[in-house]
Design a protein around this nucleic acid. Sequence first.
DNA 1: TAGATTGTTAATCGATTAACAATC
DNA 2: TAGATTGTTAATCGATTAACAATC
Lengths: 214, 214
Amino acid sequence: MIKQVSLPTLRRLPSYYNIICDASSRGEKYISSANIAKLLLIDDTQVRKDIASTGYVGKPKVGFDIAEFKLHLEEFLGLKNTRKAFLVGAGNLGVALSKYVGFKKYGLEILALFDNDPLKQGMSFGDKKVYPTSQISQMVKEHSVQMAILTVPYSQAQDVTDFLVASGIKAIWNFTTANLTVPDDVLVDNQDLASSFVTFSLLFSEKLRQNLDD
Amino acid sequence: MIKQVSLPTLRRLPSYYNIICDASSRGEKYISSANIAKLLLIDDTQVRKDIASTGYVGKPKVGFDIAEFKLHLEEFLGLKNTRKAFLVGAGNLGVALSKYVGFKKYGLEILALFDNDPLKQGMSFGDKKVYPTSQISQMVKEHSVQMAILTVPYSQAQDVTDFLVASGIKAIWNFTTANLTVPDDVLVDNQDLASSFVTFSLLFSEKLRQNLDD
DNA sequence: TAGATTGTTAATCGATTAACAATC
DNA sequence: TAGATTGTTAATCGATTAACAATC
């Protein structure tokens, strides 16, 4: 039996983990759902439901055991599994992501970069080399990689995606604005920062109106 | 009267805009809700509802006028407004964001970078200079900036945020893992890529199980 | 024990989907 | 006109919140 965790819950779990790590580093022993809820500006019932959905149980009257819950979340979120990935598109964003240290904590290991530009091929960023995109196919097999991070220009996004899929990639973290078309057994997760900025900007406009009303 | 648009709708609107731009560049005249829905793997009723909530009306039997709808969305999403912002934390991610050209289309203009590290101060990335963080206060006033993009290390996130708020910043696009505490009239929008990776990774694990079941 | 906090069932709320009349 | 597509009301679905019993 596999626990069914809803997407909203899934998105909140990393925040719980961050709060727990924080509390742990401050040497605290227990934390209550009300405590977590206040930090995230959500309902405490929701926190308990979310935690329950991961299978962890707290102690009535005391709360959740921080050390225990931390380990449980690491297990549940798969933070200790290494996830090998290739990054395709060695532009500014791609290179920054490949250097970004924040991913290590969560098990993401970017093995190599790929780019169509011959000028970039052979270059190294940190300990990662840039290969011709055409070599993905072979290297996917060699290193049993299933994940790709896509940071190519918009105009190349679908073509490169088709090639990734043909090479055996099963999950694409898509930083482009393109709506990628892929077969049913391939996952695409969109992370377009420009679109996210639009949302942020609109929320801000709304907020300004609210502030005026007060 | 201000139209009330729900957050899920708000998050979908940039995708509509991308699809419309695409269709427009291919020289198409009209697009139907069913058409858009198929591209985004959502329901066509939802597309019509979302569009209706922006105040745009289509033509029964024909669909939505692409050129007209494009202009309407640009207006509604405020894409033609320039949004000035400061970027705080000139690390890998910060520098990449400051160079990222994808933001220009949506009106984001990053005026300058700030960092506590004296080695970085005075450096330039593209046409943007790095200033000491302490100068934010003065420059916020000089340039009437209300937005900040936060890419500092986790340990400095809250302190820098307090300083930004004291300097008059009203909206923070937060790329750190920290749960920032701010006054009620300040907006924080979280965009932690490491947490997003965890979600992506979990969705992939689920997908793999689904694929096995088929 | 009494009080505090969890775990869970029931109620509410809001978003998505279905159905269908209006319209060009 | 007939057919296709919009706009909108009603039904469904699922997530959030409220209420409260269980428990240490």
